[in-house]
Design a protein around this nucleic acid. Sequence first.
RNA 1: GCCGCGGUAGUAUAGCCCGGCCAAGUAUGCGGGCCUUUCAAGCCCGUGACCCGGGUUCAAAUCCCGGCCGCGGCACCA
Length: 538
Amino acid sequence: MAEVVKEVNALSPDEQRRLLEEEYAWLLERRRRRAEEEKRLPPLPAAERGKVVTRFAPNPDFVLHIGNARAAVLSYEYARMYEGRMILRFEDTDPRTKQPMPEAYELIREDLRWLGIRWDEEYVQSLRMEVFYDVARKLIERGGAYVDTEPPEKFREYRDSGNLARYPPRLRSPEENLELWDRMLEGHFGEGEAVLRVKTDPAHPDPSVRDWVACRIIDTSKTPHPIVGDRYIVWPTYNFAAAVDDHLMGVTHILRAREHAQNTVKQQFLYSHLGWRYPVVITFGRLKLEGMIMSKSALRRLAEERGVRLDDPRLATLRALRRRGIDPEAVRRLILDVGVKQTDASISYVNLASVNRSIVDGRARRVMAAIDPVPMLVEGLPWERKEFEVPYHPSVDLGSRRLEVPGPTATLYVSRSDARALRPGDVVRLMEAFNVEVVEVRGDRVVARFHSLSLEEARRRGAPIIQWVPASDAVPVEVHVPEGFELRVDRGLAEPAAAELKVGEVVQLVRYGFARVDAVLRGEDGRVEKLVMVYAHD
RNA sequence: GCCGCGGUAGUAUAGCCCGGCCAAGUAUGCGGGCCUUUCAAGCCCGUGACCCGGGUUCAAAUCCCGGCCGCGGCACCA
């Protein structure tokens, strides 16, 4: 075996490829087949082409993070796979404990568009209150719900002692309940004084399922809703609103995270009262980025109390990933790769980086920068002035730029980490340009002498190849590198062509890593004074 | 505590429903090599896993039972 490996390794890549194609085509074929299979999501149960309706139903209390994106991407991909429709529905029926964030509606739309998700219909639940009231009334008429005017402790007492079937409010007639319901709507009750409960199995093994609350009173004069203000005081709970809307909107398949699994059970009671058919539910686990804060409330606290921006690159929000130079396609691929298992998935950033690299590599221009720059004085250059034309990418045609080096002496900059490794007598190649021999290394300064021009010469001597920056027109650059919850800032000088970079572009700083241009700061004369970048990955 | 859902290499995932083709596939990571004006990409080789214990069976990652561990729910939150 080892010999065979040696033999194959001795061949050039072209020869290897040819051999593979000619003699072992079946191997390639098998590999191709597998690669195709892996991209696909498992089929959706009971799905008919053209009839699938999915929904993504976020609470607009914060922007989306990668965990939320899982539900969004899966809902969208399945709808697309079956040529169906996807609905975006804002679930903002709690103006008290989960106060919606007024900007979040639009920020979430932005996040979704960034992910490449297009929805066919959009609803805001706080604008559909009358719809919920109508269904509630119908439910009461059918004897499927009752108004409970007892204090919560009383209810719990009956529920937990197995006497729920004999709970007095539960025994009320639909007529009585309708009357109480109207009183609720009219404002006769204050917060906590009355709720509407759905009748379930009073002996259900899960106590939380027993006669769950469909509507409660929220005093919106104290906590107004950002969209409808204090117009309503009776508010549907999540379970009621979501269940009603899923039916009314014709949702056929619900893709929901595991924390909602119990809710399916609750909602089914409502459906059976109303004679509705419950959609197919697919439950999946949580998706988190290793070592990153994923809890919405914790993120929100950071934003509100510590003034952390919603797109701070240390966060796991979608806009933070975008700012780091992560392509939406990478997020999508990762989510599809993780699939719909019920187990939680904890993805490492390295993994996301790898997917992103494969997307971004072919279109990221290569730019040289000296991080923590150290001047290198080069003497004995056999020219007055010389230009090197350097392509922006080693194998893809992304254009090129010129680098100018004066003579017979010139000052350049190299990275400190490279300078530190230099010893007098070493020959080193300045990438894409020429070779120098180190004369002396003294503290913050390297003196070198022109050695030769050709790459072959550098190869022959096993000279290291390092990136460099001409001293004139070098562009100061600052790279923000998230490290856990810290943010390291690397400072350096980039080659003059970096002044042409546009905000949002992802480039590869040669031998350093991929980074996204976050800001281009200009002086009064329009010259670029500084480039701020955010580090993506190596 | 009660209810529910899970446990395949460091991570993620395929296989489990319909037991044998699985001495377990893939991606990423890690180690080595080739290639290459980048420590990027590409190519080759290697590394590494069926939670534990019983049972059923000619045969179990796959079925059954028990245990352990993890996660979720137990709100007038979503």
